[in-house]
């Protein structure tokens, strides 16, 4: 599904990713963990196509196509979804209008007929309930005045509506209390299928207790320095990132 090969990228002339290689197959959940400044956010930004990042080497193949050559909206239409660490407030843009427009762009891209307002509402109703979103939610402007938890739930709600092939969850657990974390995690887990994949980017192990990864990768200084199963996350939680860093320095 996704193949990242020797990816080098940076911003403002500063090299941040220094050769990331990672393969994600359908049905898999991968977690990328790493300390602050290791390049986690840069990786998600480059995959989603945010402006300002420069890829200096390497490539990213998504479903047989070069992902980096696609505009952000094309990536989204092809099934890449980024759940933002800091979802943006967009005053004046109604949530229904926004999400219906997004869904119909995706449907159009796949040759499906666009949904009208009634069909759209029927589709989203249960998904809203599952994420414990209030009924007036769709009438409000996108993320405006939402609490931190509501914003994160909204990201997962959008994911549920758009049904991406590859979901990238960027620090989705940050700012969530334990109840909200459970709701959000359950939402993510419900979307897990044999034909899609999830990439969970997180600093802490906390989220991984609920969204169980098949693989855990540790990102340090722009490279994946260690990969393992879900037990690696627990080990990191107990021993901290210094453990990996010092081990690495030792072997180097």
């Amino acid at each position: 599904m996704l193949e990242i090969r020797n990816l080098h990228a940076g911003i403002d002339g500063k090299q941040i990713l220094k050769g990331v290689t990672l393969t994600i197959n359908p049905g898999e959940v991968h977690a990328i963990m790493g300390p602050n400044g290791s390049g986690k956010s840069t990786l998600s930004a480059v995959l989603a196509g945010r402006d300002g990042y420069e890829v200096t080497a390497g490539e990213v193949i998504y479903q047989g196509k070069s992902l980096l050559e696609m505009a952000p909206e094309e990536r989204a239409r092809e099934g890449v979804f980024l759940a933002f660490q800091y979802p943006v407030e967009i005053p004046g843009v109604n949530s229904t209008y926004f999400l219906k427009a997004a869904l119909n762009e995706v449907r159009k891209h796949h040759g499906l007929v666009e949904l009208d307002a009634i069909e759209f509402l029927a589709l989203v109703k249960d998904k809203m309930k599952a994420l414990e979103l209030r009924e007036d939610f769709l009438k409000r402007p996108v993320n405006e005045g939402f609490s931190g938890g509501e914003k994160k739930k909204n990201e997962i709600f959008q994911m549920a509506v758009l049904e991406p092939k590859l979901a990238i969850l960027d620090e989705t657990d940050s700012g969530l209390d334990i109840d909200a974390l459970k709701v959000v995690s359950a939402g993510v887990n419900r979307l897990r299928r044999a034909d899609n994949a999830q990439l969970v980017i997180t600093h802490y192990q906390r989220l991984l207790a609920y969204v169980i990864p098949d693989f855990v990768h540790v990102l340090c200084d722009g490279r994946i320095v260690r990969s393992g199963g879900k037990e690696l996350a627990l080990e990191l939680e107990q021993r901290g990132y210094d453990w990996i860093l010092s081990e690495r320095n030792h072997t180097a």
Partner: peptide, 20 residues
Amino acid sequence: FYLRSRGIGLERARRMLMHA
């Protein structure tokens, strides 16, 4: 960028924001 990351094209995203 947020709008584009959901599949909405650049031109439409700009219009949406201006209209908002």
